[in-house]
Amino acid sequence: MKINENTLLEGHRVVLVPYNADHVPRYHAWMKSPELQQLTASEPLTLEQEYDMQRSWREDNDKCTFIILDKQRWADPSVEEEQCMVGDVNIFLTDPTDPSLAELEIMIAEPSYRGRGIGKEVTHMMMSYGVTKLGIKKFQAKIGLDNEVSIGMFKKLHFQEVRRRDVFSCLVCKVFKEVTLELTVDDLVRARLLDDTTFVKERDYRQTCGNRQELVSH
């Protein structure tokens, strides 16, 4: 999505940056993992297909994607940005007739970063961005039934379960069992969400390349 192509969001422990071509090799390596394929109900792609997907996420008007970076590592200019990657977070506008409805998806790909509250911080940041910049009024999250940690996190964020079903993948004859959770953004939810994300700083991604340490120290 063009709207966030130069947007950087800085949180307490993470930095969210646009998904660019430099991130693709590590992302591709992540998605070779059978565990991540299972958790995200996705299929492995070739590297060329992964680059095509990156361009799609960057250009299409119905997708908004950020790569999650470890803020502490990112603050060190000697560390390449790709080495700071933790996962990704996405908003998909799934209904062409209703641009206020969005599916929210988060993946913490690096196992050592799971269970540390990073998913909750990132989800809050992305939801706030979706509400204030994209006009989202209802969020959905579709999660594999085996992913109990993510289901629990979304329920703690006041998402309500609305559906359970089997999802068939015809290419490889797999069946994924998933649950759909929803949250309607009324005035109370919006106020709570914005209050929970007052710490987030929005910056121009292009201006952070040479002064990462200075920005984080302030």
Rank of each mutant, 00 (worst) to 15 (best):
V89F: 05
G117N: 05
T132Y: 04
R165M: 07
T208W: 00
K174L: 11
K201R: 13
N6F: 03
G115T: 01
G87F: 06
Q49R: 09
V175Y: 06
V162P: 06
V179A: 13
K156Q: 14
G135P: 01
E178K: 03
E43K: 04
D88A: 01
R192I: 01
M53C: 06
E105N: 11
F168P: 03
P34M: 06
F139I: 00
K174A: 05
R116K: 13
E110S: 02
L193K: 11
R55F: 01
L36E: 00
T208C: 11
E202M: 11
F139L: 08
L215P: 02
F66A: 03
D95M: 04
E50I: 04
R26Q: 10
Q160C: 12
R190M: 07
R203Q: 14
A102Y: 04
F92D: 15
T40S: 00
K2Q: 12
V86T: 08
E182N: 14
V131P: 06
L39P: 00
A141Y: 00
I151V: 09
V179R: 08
A141S: 10
C84V: 08
D98S: 06
Y129G: 04
V167W: 14
K32Y: 03
V131Y: 00
Q49E: 15
F92I: 09
R203F: 10
F168M: 05
D62H: 12
K120F: 02
A21H: 08
C173M: 12
H218P: 01
E178T: 09
H12I: 14
F199V: 07
V179W: 00
K174H: 06
E80M: 08
S217P: 08
K137Y: 03
T65C: 15
V79N: 07
E10F: 12
A41S: 13
N90T: 10
F154Q: 02
R13P: 02
D195S: 15
K142E: 10
F176T: 00
K156I: 02
K177C: 12
P18A: 06
L215V: 15
T65I: 13
L101R: 09
K137N: 10
V172N: 13
T184W: 01
D60A: 10
A141C: 02
F199A: 12
K71W: 04
L171T: 07
T132K: 15
V86Q: 04
D76Y: 00
N211H: 15
V122Q: 00
Q207W: 01
H158C: 12
D60L: 04
A191H: 14
T46E: 02
V86Y: 03
T65K: 15
D95E: 11
E10K: 14
D70H: 09
Q160R: 12
L134S: 01
Q49M: 09
G11E: 06
P34Q: 08
V216E: 11
T97W: 10
E59A: 13
N90S: 08
M1D: 05
